[in-house]
Design a binder for these strands. Structure first.
Lengths: 232, 232
DNA sequence: ATTTAAAACGAACGTTCGTGCTATATACTT
DNA sequence: AAGTATATAGCACGAACGTTCGTTTTAAAT
């Protein structure tokens, strides 16, 4: 699946071959890194997986760090395509905010990346490892927080959300619940965690909404029956 | 293998020296692993840091995996001593629940482990890496979730919390907010995240409380002034 | 004082890591 | 058809990894 690449011409020629190979490398790199980490992503392993020589692969990037940065960038493109883009199809502020959260959960549940949220994994791995990779990961996650926050502000400006709520606070809470669902799913395979996160977010959203905003939210789901018996 | 052996005597003798060294190793191991990961924890690095020979250190554990497991266990002991223990000094159910959350946040903010919550880091690192280490980490985090959950149940049984609340759901939310604060602090050094988590948890707790339970919670903090201007 | 067993050491093993250097195959330019 | 730039391969390197082995140091037991 070639995400973007050249628009029209069938991409032939010596030059284009390099770009195509690079893209193929990055697709595999993103997949591997999301599960085994950006450091566990070794050049030898990647080369084997793609039937390339180590040096041949390595030539596409000047260093391992460059490969990691390129991998992060590729993951960001996928994230935007899979989450942010679709959510912004909603034009009304409150539904868009809700959609942002819901699609994020779908993005993890649907296995867009093998290891769950790519950036949650990468952030945990690099948060104590200063350098450009860490900085880029932090910046990208801040983009997401800002997207959430702006969606809250937009809902307030549209009179759909109470202006007394702090947008940064709400963005923090939603992000935390999302990461919490990702955590539970990765560690326990617990699919119910998504429903829990959805419920918590929706409830919080409802409580922060004005009466006009609340009408734009989905109605409450029926109480779940046969909930797995909570264990000691 | 006499893990326990003599209870009292001041731990002298050749046999005891081994146990003391082992303990010293594990202290450093926990510190290193919390920041650089359980895999980044290499035997050579650890030996250098402790002025031991690689082989001398290695002899205390049969394998790297055993070292990792022992490190996880040592971290658990610290976690229980620093978080669970102190919180259980509160005898009343609702304050205990609140204390569990608050002390957890202190435990991250106070730098008990260099890399934030040891288990959050370890879980992210091993969630796609099957084996005994992953299993142990998952079990320990489940212990924590269960502790939260039981505290909720206790509050309900004491008539301090609404029985319509699903204890597992509440435990999930609190855990998520805690992990979210840990994430923000590790990645951005954002100390405000702890206040945000506290506020969200306390608000949620208040909303789930009965009138008698609410009286046992701390009063609302004064609205924070001079909040850092939220950036775009 | 001699024996004994635990603890720590030093050196080496086979791998794998990231990274260079050099050569060859391929397609585009002239 | 010759020349050139790019893409990939081959090979080797130094370092670090986990691990094994045989030896030496050390403190307790005899």
């Amino acid at each position: 699946m070639e995400t973007i690449k050249e628009t029209k011409p069938a991409a032939t020629g010596r030059k284009a071959q390099g770009a195509r190979t690079r893209q193929a490398i990055l697709e595999t790199a993103v997949d591997v890194a999301s599960a085994e980490g950006l450091e566990g992503l070794t050049i030898g392993r990647l080369a084997t997986e793609l039937s390339l020589s180590k040096s041949g692969l390595f030539a596409h990037f000047g260093s391992k760090e460059d490969l990691q940065l390129a991998t992060v960038e590729a993951a960001r493109a996928i994230f935007i395509r899979e989450v942010v883009g679709p959510a912004f199809e909603a034009e009304n502020a409150m539904p868009r905010l809700w959609k942002l959260c819901e699609i994020w959960l779908d993005y993890v549940q649907g296995g867009v990346f093998r290891g769950g949220c790519f950036f949650a994994a990468a952030a945990a791995e690099f948060d104590s490892r200063p350098g450009p990779v860490r900085d880029r990961i932090a910046a990208i996650m801040k983009e997401w927080l800002s997207t959430l926050r702006r969606a809250v502000v937009a809902a307030q400006e549209a009179g759909q959300m109470d202006t007394s709520v702090d947008p940064t606070q709400l963005a923090f809470e939603f992000n935390a619940l999302e990461l919490g669902a990702n955590w539970a799913f990765q560690l326990y395979g617990d699919r119910q965690a998504f429903a829990r996160a959805r419920e918590a977010i929706l409830e919080r959203l409802r409580r922060a909404s004005t009466s006009s905003g609340a009408k734009l939210l989905p109605s409450l789901k029926a109480k779940r029956r046969g909930r797995a018996p909570a264990r000691s």
